[in-house]
Structures are given as structure tokens and as C-alpha cells.
Simulated assay, not measured.
Amino acid sequence: MPKRGDRGGAQTRARIAAAATDLFLKRGFEDVTTAEVAAAAGVSKVTVFAHFDRKEDLLLDRLPDALDATRSAIRERADGTDVLEAIRRAALALAAQRHPLSGLSEGAEPLLRTLTGSTALISRLRQFEYEIEKELAAELDADAHFRGDSALVAALLVAAYRTVAVDTVRRRLAGDDLTEISEAHHSRLEHAFEVLTTGIPSSTPQPHNR
């Protein structure tokens, strides 16, 4: 597979992904073949699969960026910054930029409809959740300053982010105002990390003062 730092390889990968996305949005994911994507991008099927492991990754081509962002947040955080705080800042930065990974980018509705309308793409996203959870746990294990159950923390982080992202997608497809969605996304992320940091508030009734 071409190295990600290979400029020519990166350009070819981007061209293939762009051609695939255009076809998928016009005709639906299941109704487009890999051969058609290759023809539209001006490459062979062999070249397509040299850059992408599976057809689903042609549309979900930014998933490796999510892994890179997670690694960078942990490895490049400032001295004295907690791991959870570093990941919180990274997630909020993506939201503030309305980065495609946040689900808040302008005009994303056609892509989101294509994604949610395909069982194969949804299955690939669920598989990716497991992949990034494993990667996150490994990063936490390797971090000299992290103290805690890396597998549990990774699972909770992925579940929290998925919950926020799913609601954001649902509201976008329902036609809600993007500014309001962005504000709610930001607020729920903040709350999610607060819960992860401080714990779930007790539901035990407090005695009344007499």
C-alpha cells in the first residue's frame, strides 16, 4: 500500500475517494461498483485496492484521520495536560472548525443520507469503532503518565463520542438549524467529558434537611 506520506500516492487516493463519493451520492452506495469508481478516477481496480482495503472505505476515507487525530492528541499534549483533557480539546477543536469528522461540515446532508441508508456502511462504522477503541487503549497503555484501566477508558470515550455524533447526524437529517446543532454538539461534548472526568452523578435521593 502506498505510504501516506507519498505525495503522489496521496493525490491518487484523494482522486479515487472524490470520484467514489460523487458516484455514491448520485446513485447510492450499493448501486455503484468498484470498477465504475476506478473508471471514473482514471485508474485500475488494482490501484483502487492498493489505496483502500474495502469498498466502504472509499466513502469513509477520513477514518484514518480520526486515528491520526487521536494519536496526536495524546502524544503531542503539553506537559501536565491530562489525557482526557487533551482528547476533549481535540474533539472540541474539530467541532469548532466544523471539520467533516465532527459531522458539522457545511452541506454534509447528502453524504449522511447515503451513509445512514447503507447497512454495509453502518457496519463498517461499527467495526471502526472497535478499531479506534483498540488503538486508543494501546496509546493509553504506552503513555507513561496515564494511570487507569486503559481498555475501560477507551471504551467509554468511544461510546461517549458516538452518542454525541449520532444525535448530531439525526438532527441534521431532520433539517434542524446547523448553528443550533453545533451549539448542542459542543454542549454535549463538554458534558460527556465532564461525566468521564468526575463520574456519573449519584441518583440516590438526598435526605431533606429538617
Rank of each mutant, 00 (worst) to 15 (best):
A78W: 07
A20Y: 06
F146A: 06
A35Q: 09
V46K: 13
L196R: 13
A35F: 07
V195K: 03
A66T: 01
M1L: 07
A19D: 02
T197H: 08
Y161S: 12
A154I: 03
E129T: 07
A14L: 15
S102R: 04
E109P: 07
E194L: 15
L112D: 03
R170V: 12
F193L: 05
P64Y: 07
Q97V: 05
R13M: 11
L25Y: 06
T163N: 12
D57C: 03
E194T: 15
P64I: 11
E129P: 00
A20C: 11
E85A: 15
G80W: 13
D82K: 14
H191C: 03
A154N: 07
A144W: 00
A120F: 05
A144Y: 00
G117S: 08
L121G: 02
S202V: 00
E30K: 06
R170A: 14
S72K: 15
V32T: 08
A120H: 11
T204H: 04
A151R: 12
E109R: 07
L104Q: 12
L111P: 00
A108N: 06
V164Q: 09
K55E: 09
V37R: 07
S118A: 08
A18M: 11
A159T: 10
A38G: 02
E183L: 10
I16S: 08
K26I: 00
I200D: 00
T34C: 09
A174W: 01
A39H: 10
L94T: 01
D143M: 02
D176L: 12
A144T: 01
D143C: 08
R13T: 13
A155G: 09
A19N: 04
A69P: 00
R54F: 01
R113E: 13
T198M: 02
S72G: 09
L140K: 04
R89Y: 04
L59V: 04
L67S: 11
G8S: 14
A160M: 11
L178Q: 13
K134L: 11
R54M: 03
L112F: 11
A160C: 09
V166F: 14
G9A: 08
A19I: 03
L92F: 10
L23C: 02
L196D: 10
E180K: 13
L67T: 09
A86V: 11
K55M: 07
G28W: 06
H191E: 10
R98T: 13
E135N: 00
L115R: 09
S118Q: 05
A86E: 14
Y130L: 13
A95S: 15
R27T: 06
K26L: 05
I16Y: 08
K134Y: 10
H186P: 02
D57E: 14
L67Q: 10
K3C: 10
T33G: 07
D61Q: 10
L125C: 05
E56V: 04
